[in-house]
Structures are given as C-alpha cells and as structure tokens.
C-alpha cells in the first residue's frame, strides 16, 4: 500500500515537472511549478524529512512562488509561450531529445545501482550529546556543518546585493501606495503578529524537533512581505544603519562569535559544550532575523521593479 502511495507521488512529481515545462502560458507554468514544489514537499514528508518539507514548501514553493507571480506582471504581456518563435528548430529539438534520453538512461542506471554507503546517521546520533541540541538536523546545520550554514546565511545577503546590482545601486523600495484595501490592512494587522509568534515558536522548536532558523525566517519574512503589501514601508522608512544591522546581524554575529572562540584557542565556529545550546539559539535567532529581513527586502525590490509601481525605479546608468 505505502509503496503505491510513494510511486504515485513520484509519478505525479515527474508528470507535474513535464507539464510545467510544456505549459502553454507562463501563469500556468508558475502554478504547475507550485504544484510540483508541494508534491516534492509531500515526498519529503514521506521520506521522513520534515524539516526539508517545511523549507521546500515555505521557501522554494512559497517565497519563490511569490516572486514568480510578481514577475509575471512583466512577462505575461506575451500571453502565449507557444509557437511564436519560442521553441528551437525541430532538428535541434531532436538532437536535444536524443541527448537527454541517453543522459536519462545513464542516470537511471547510476541511481539504480548506487552502492550503499551507509550515510552518517550513526555518527550524527553518537555525537548529538556533544552538539548542544537534541534535534539531529539542527545539530548538523548549526554545529557539525555550521560553516555551510554560515555561508548560506551570507548567500541570501549576497543575493540581495546582486539584485541591487541589476539596477546599479542600492535601493530599498517603498510599497506601492495606491489605496490599499482597508479589509486587507486589517487582516494583515491580524496576521503579522501571529506569523511572528509562530516563527518564534518554530525557531525554539528547532532545538528538539523539526523547525529552526530557516523555517522561522520564512514566516518572519512573510510577515514583512505582508506589511509591505499592506502599505507599511518596512525598510524604506528605517534608518540606514538599522536596516544594515538587521541585514548583516546573522552573518556577522555568527562570524564574530566564531572569531571570539577562535581567539580563545578553538577552531572557527567551535562552541564550548556548556554554552552550545544557548549560543546556537542566539545565532539562530539572529540568522532568522537577517534572512527574514533580506527576504522582505528582496520582495520589496521585486515589487518595486514592476512598471505599475508608484515610484517606478529606473536603473542608475543606461
């Protein structure tokens, strides 16, 4: 029975991926991509990866989905993605098809006959008492492999700077100040504190159960995005030093702490066991705050790129 459910889910994921890429219009493509992401999240829940499922649903399907929909305002002008010169010629399509088919056969043989390396489950479990947290995924993210996580917090900040680079200067967009629906504002006012509360809860939960900084960050970021959509200028009205502090706190504090303990003779990101639990919670909180801030700023930038923005942003040069 369960094998059937899994097979169904796997086939559905493949089907949605194909349909998404063959969709005749871009909005359809986006919504099928949503469905693909949610199917993957279900698959991950089935595979016992609850953290990943939350992260996928929240970041990859949720946040990126919002950006994709916002981008549709620019791209949906040409409604159809179909025949009008979109597809390459038949010959090159055939070549690509043949190439991908060969690739597929080799890939399937490879994943089918992959030897069982055994993974690191036992090792991760054995060292859990030394990590300062009780949830293995959090232990990997914030202790065993905290270097990766640190760089990743940085990548979100770099993505924001990269976004600024497309316009040639740093720019925190104001909300589109057309009359925001009063009902929407009320609902947002109601939802934002709830989101922040649930985010904090998930963050705290990360010590023992699925949850943690990234999941919390997306909820907080969602709060920021809602406020932006409701007409509250979250970043644009903030003092520059404060918003830079918000954006860099996670990445910076992580590093600062690492340097501090390194000065004491340890390695970078090596925490003494007695304080590890607390330090990890502080690092996670600041990281979540910074990621949330960056996600909000990324969305605000996207929203401000739109031609219908009240304050249309024109690039510095060109």
């Amino acid at each position: 029975m369960s094998l059937w459910i899994d097979s169904l889910l796997a086939v559905l994921a493949v089907f949605l991926a194909v349909r998404c890429l063959l969709a005749p219009t871009l909005p359809q493509c986006v919504f099928l991509f949503f469905a693909f992401g949610l199917t993957l999240a279900l698959a991950w829940a089935r595979l016992g990866a609850v953290d990943v499922a939350i992260a996928e649903a929240a970041i990859a399907a949720g946040f990126l989905g919002v950006l994709l929909i916002d981008a549709l305002r620019d791209f949906s002008r040409s409604r159809s993605t179909g025949e009008g010169g979109d597809r390459p010629s038949r010959v090159s399509q055939g070549l690509v098809g043949a190439g991908v088919l060969v690739f597929l056969v080799v890939a399937i043989e490879a994943v089918w006959r992959v030897p069982n390396g055994g993974g690191l489950t036992a090792l991760a479990a054995d060292n859990l008492p030394q990590s300062g947290v009780d949830h293995p995924v959090t232990a990997v993210l914030l202790n065993y492999r905290s270097y990766d996580t640190w760089l990743e917090v940085g990548v979100v900040l770099m993505a924001l700077l990269a976004l600024f680079a497309t316009g040639g200067r740093e720019y925190f967009c104001r909300p589109v100040v057309r009359a925001v629906d009063p009902l929407l504002r009320q609902v947002i006012l109601l939802f934002t504190p709830v989101l922040f509360l649930v985010g904090a809860f998930l963050l705290y939960l990360g010590k023992t159960e699925p949850g943690g900084a990234f999941q919390a960050a997306v909820l907080w970021g969602a709060g920021g995005i809602l406020l932006h959509l409701g007409g509250w200028p979250v970043f644009a009205s903030m003092a520059p030093w404060l918003r830079h502090l918000l954006l860099t706190a996670g990445f910076g504090f992580f590093l600062l702490l690492g340097f501090l303990f390194m000065a004491g003779g340890g390695a970078l990101f090596e925490y003494p066991l007695a304080q590890a639990g607390l330090l990890i919670l502080v690092v996670e909180t600041l990281a979540a705050l910074s990621i949330a801030a960056a996600l909000t700023a990324i969305f605000a930038y996207f929203n401000g790129m739109s031609a219908e923005s009240a304050e249309p942003f024109t690039p510095a040069s060109s």
């Binding site: 629906d181 609902v187 939802f191 709830v194």
Partner: peptide, 16 residues
C-alpha cells in the same frame, strides 16, 4: 481558522 481567514480575504480581493 487561519486558512478560513486567508482564503476568504484572498477570495474577496480577487473578486474585487
């Protein structure tokens, strides 16, 4: 409850 709220708000906004 939150789904109810969200979906009715979304519905209202789309209709509007």
């Amino acid at each position: 409850l939150s789904t109810l709220l969200a979906s009715s708000t979304a519905c209202y906004l789309v209709a509007k």
